[in-house]
Design a protein around this nucleic acid. Structure first.
Lengths: 331, 331
DNA sequence: CTGAAAGCGCTAACAC
DNA sequence: GTGTTAGCGCTTTCAG
């Protein structure tokens, strides 16, 4: 122990934890700090935790951390915020398997995590298991009702932002949506993000005295983006602007457009969602409304650490990343 | 304590940890197990760790966990292996900042991690800080010399695999490399992966009695892939097959090819490296030699847990992911 | 203001 | 075979 530095362990403990309950002689303080620095003393967090019931460790459970860069940035944001306050992250994923989830939750509980972020990598239903009910928990990206803080991207605002980017550039007519609400046989009502994004788009277009010229409903994968644009063109539509509901759809759309000899953005402007790596890889680079991964992670941990509990919905803005796929049309 | 289940804590501790030093009455065993199950007893790992000096937690430190899906899959593999053996992962990233790294290493050390995976998301120089010298450490993706196990993708073998895919499909002449060794002004000697991949390619081509027709050296980004292919074509070359040194280059190459009216794979076959998401998004889908992210993570943790130490290099195979971008040419 | 002492929950000597 | 006991390294009451 660094306590062999002139004072008792009590005194040392007090100055190191910066308590002022009992006034400690400035001299003693100096001596303790000096000794601690000199010996490179670092308290054993395990021992401390046993005593204080606080591990300064928070669990991060997600369904998938692999697929998509979503996870990486979320963890990054969460970690930065955690580290700022002296916390560390126990990261794990369930792969959607309840058995794996149980095991993993137990392991975390065994290690006395102070709180957990229960994250889903795509906005969808899902609730933390009962075993976590004793702990502070925030749900990231969950749509299901949950009696605690929930963090979600502001998809509605994102939809508005996308449409506004087009309107501000002077677009008015012949604006088509590719992907739409994601209405497929599997998801006849569309998906959460699709419904909200489209509602935001519709709102702004309505405000501008216009409306979407058509919406191609499909799963949000490149091939459907291709098919969507191709079929639009085949049916004689002549879009001036495309709202692609994600970047992968935009990839497909680019291909279809190029094939027909239509240039982006000269002939048709494109705005998209997610701001994945693709957006900056495509040529021309793609203007996209970003999923605020990093901020979502940050917000989740901050919410946990601020002790804000109780049922509430926290919504994180989706910022526009302007690139080269929108042409300003002079009126 | 569940120990109030008929026997003493010692007995309970013994049966729960499955020790046979002292023969315990089968009856007692049953009673203990029953009680444990009934009460849902789980030992407090914090307390146990304090006593045993084992936390069953391993630290995973990387420079970037965000960019590229690399990180996600690596963590996934590491986590699966860890969890199988009752370990959990403390995940953190340094963002390449030594200050951040120090803080984070200290926090991990405070929490008494049993071992650490020191990972770099791109194969490059880098060594774990001295503070970690007391702990079992494996280095993932580090090129620098290090006195312990190092895990690397088998880039040389990967290069061979890519070339063999072309040769096996009947290609022989007019095979060009795009990206090459990544020789740029910043990296005049190319990069590690580039040198090895190209060496593997050269070897296999030599074995087949031929050689690369040309190599366009550039940074491995889409625009350079585009430029590379465009300039090749402009100079009158007529490639029958392209070895793109990563998928992003292939993206650019596809665009250049399409622009000149050359079809993949009818006119030119393409094989690539990394097997990123892009590979399956492109049309036609891209045959790519995969970076074995998941396996790298798995191997890292397994190596750590198996207690294999000492300086050695562990190389993980890069498997081919055959898709639609190679045409079989009949001789 | 400082020191002695208890105890967090568990494991592992060591007696019974 | 089973129970008693002493810590792991730290915080925190409670007397000096």
């Amino acid at each position: 122990m660094a306590r062999r530095a002139g004072v008792s362990r009590t005194t040392a403990s007090f100055v190191l934890s910066g308590r002022t309950d009992m006034r400690i002689s400035p001299d003693a303080q100096r001596r303790v700090n000096a000794a601690a620095a000199e010996l490179g003393y670092r308290p054993n967090q395990t021992a401390r935790s046993l005593r204080t019931q606080v591990t300064r460790t928070i669990g991060m459970i997600s369904d998938t951390i692999a697929t998509t860069q979503f996870a990486g940035e979320v963890i990054h944001g969460a970690l930065d915020t955690a580290l700022e306050r002296g916390y560390l992250l126990l990261v794990a994923e369930t792969s959607g398997d309840p058995i794996a989830e149980k095991k993993l939750v137990d392991e975390m509980l065994d290690r006395q995590v102070d709180a957990v972020v229960y994250a889903m990598m795509f906005t969808k239903p899902g609730c933390p298991p009962d075993a976590l009910s004793e702990l502070p928990v925030v749900v990231l990206n969950g749509i299901d009702d949950f009696d605690g803080p929930r963090i979600l991207p502001d998809e509605l605002g994102g939809g508005r932002t996308a449409a506004r980017a087009l309107v501000d550039a002077g677009h008015h007519d012949d604006i088509y949506a590719i992907g739409g609400r994601h209405r497929t046989t599997d998801t006849p009502d569309g998906v959460y993000a699709g419904r909200l994004r489209m509602r935001g788009v519709d709102e702004v277009l309505a405000d501008a005295g216009t409306a979407i010229a058509g919406s191609y409903e499909c799963a949000w994968e490149p091939e459907h983006g291709y098919e969507g644009v191709a079929s639009l063109l085949d049916e004689g539509h002549r879009p001036k602007a495309l709202v692609c509901l994600n970047d992968r759809l935009a990839l497909g759309a680019y291909q279809a457009l190029e094939e027909r000899g239509l240039r982006v953005p000269e002939d048709v402007s494109v705005v998209s969602f997610d701001d994945s790596d693709l957006a900056s890889w495509l040529r021309p680079t793609l203007t996209s409304v970003a999923l605020p991964h990093y901020e979502l992670g940050k917000t989740a941990v901050a919410t946990l650490l601020d002790g804000t509990s109780g049922r509430r919905l926290i919504t994180v803005p989706m910022p526009l990343r302007p690139r080269d796929s929108i042409r300003t049309v002079s009126a």
